[in-house]
Write a protein that binds this DNA or RNA. Sequence first.
DNA 1: TTGACGAGTGGAACCGGTTCCACCGCTGCT
DNA 2: AGCAGCGGTGGAACCGGTTCCACTCGTCAA
Lengths: 341, 341
Amino acid sequence: MAAISDVARLAGVSKATASRALSGRGHVAPATRHRVEQAAAEIGYIASPDAASLVTGRTMNVGVVIPYVNRWFFGEVLEGVETALLAAGYDLTLYHLGEPGPERRRVFDFFLARKRVDAVLAVGIDLAPHEVESLDRREKPIVLLGGSGAGAARLSIDDRAIGQLATEHLLHLGHTRIAHLAGLGAAAHGHSVPGLRRRGFLEAMSAAGLTPAGRAHIVEAEMSLPGGYVSGLQLLGHPGRRPTAVFAASDEVAFGLMRAADRLGISIPGELSVIGVDGHEYADLFGLTTVEQHPAEQGALAVEVLLRLLGEGDAVDPLPDSGAPLPTRLVVRSSTTSAPR
Amino acid sequence: MAAISDVARLAGVSKATASRALSGRGHVAPATRHRVEQAAAEIGYIASPDAASLVTGRTMNVGVVIPYVNRWFFGEVLEGVETALLAAGYDLTLYHLGEPGPERRRVFDFFLARKRVDAVLAVGIDLAPHEVESLDRREKPIVLLGGSGAGAARLSIDDRAIGQLATEHLLHLGHTRIAHLAGLGAAAHGHSVPGLRRRGFLEAMSAAGLTPAGRAHIVEAEMSLPGGYVSGLQLLGHPGRRPTAVFAASDEVAFGLMRAADRLGISIPGELSVIGVDGHEYADLFGLTTVEQHPAEQGALAVEVLLRLLGEGDAVDPLPDSGAPLPTRLVVRSSTTSAPR
DNA sequence: TTGACGAGTGGAACCGGTTCCACCGCTGCT
DNA sequence: AGCAGCGGTGGAACCGGTTCCACTCGTCAA
């Protein structure tokens, strides 16, 4: 349709001047700028981002890699990221990485390697060294929110401290038979989110002189409500040595556990205290005690860091709290209470 | 980095031939093609999509406009859409439209109007005529999944029929005092999703010779779990003429209602039958009777239609069931039972 | 008065592909 | 034998911007 040369002709200036006037770079007399803007508006000129990208090398587009969109935490992050990017004039290209597989390789080698994104924001993903390097080589900044990957900027909460804090809350209430509904892979991957939360749990327990009753008191669950339900039934199914309190690796897992308790006729918090992690939007409704984090804000913050890396805005102000873990907060509700007797 | 001219030089051919060899368009001798591919692999050549877009006008990128990412239905659709687009080699640029506001205008006038997307897929959004027209003028196909917008290809379930079906299920069980937890705006916007479901409800009721007991038996709720809880308390709060069955406009609303019933000590299904709509992943766990739809499949189907409109693939095979409503299915679980006495 | 400098502008190269057109040589048909 | 037709290839234009460089003109300092 309308190209910048049309605008230039209509305004009686050269392409060069029209470009300067519209993009705001370089010197243009105010009167000229006005004429060009007028002309652009008149013919409904819209710049082609492709042409601009081709020559500047900047696409104004950020790739977001995320393992789930339908888990509360990730959906919330995505919303925060999208809003922040849009506000900065950036597009967001979404890559939903399922379980590690051949698809994943395709995303990194084909989609992200092309010159279509200026940077990559990975949420809750463990990046392999060659994946980081492949993006590094193309000088695309990477920001990690949670997850891991050597050599990339990284924001995250302190999952170990969270596990500790949640467990200590239960300990302070006098519980001693405390179980942990961990995320899948907690035992196998010590550095993963489930792994760190599990470690915090174990540290708090042993600091209190307690050892969880064997593997019966640490059960792994898929990090979802149904996962919590299934593993919850398993955990609570043996009436003999049933725990009086459970630290669930996420709120969704906790909801599933509560549902399982309900099904088994175990009252909460009377017979069982439950604490989760996340600050899920339903936590209040279900009276779930939890360690809150704020995924939408985290997403916005990650975008801020990313824009800094891209040299956007005044490079003067330093990164906000770079290095420090993101804020979390213990919120006590009705799902936890003192140990029975 | 490496440009196609480098590949061409290394392979000893012209840019033109290198381009043909790599893109697969036009005639190239097998031996030549092989030499070019070899050369491309050797220097790690990756084509610049910007340059290609500039000249072909095709971006291999689809804009997806969605009002929520953190509602189950929408998250599920998004996953389906993303997977299908990725498989076809397309990128997905996400635009999260909050409530109608100034942001929305910006998305349509600035982001979508540029030449960066080949087509737009709008999920659950009512497009204003000028929004459709603005995209039409730029010859960008639009596919609607749910929502409305004259002049665009549209896929949707039959929300009126669903309301009718759900209500009839309750009627068949002998209920007569049936309430409806409608979505926000159901009364005001008759053509919206909540509006159509409400209409189906009313039609089924009057076909059975019943009239809902005034406005006390149709309450509007935000289409979320907390929304269903709040409005559920309101609906069930008057013990006098409490309904024996409720048709909730979505599964999430139904979950909230069930939670409210729980809080009020009303047993389900003993004292109250509940039916929802969606086929939420938690429905099975909570024993919720529902009219299932399949958002991920719907998303994939919408992508298929979109690719057809873009002339992708063999244009021979016709649109799948174009015009016919998307499939839904009544799934009876333990939240509904015969009317008391 | 002269020269340096900066604002303001135009010409042209350039980004990295795709595609039109011309051309060559070979096959196969008349 | 002559020519149409096609496979195979290269040259060059082109997509729509941005930016380097050169140039002019006016101002201000030496």
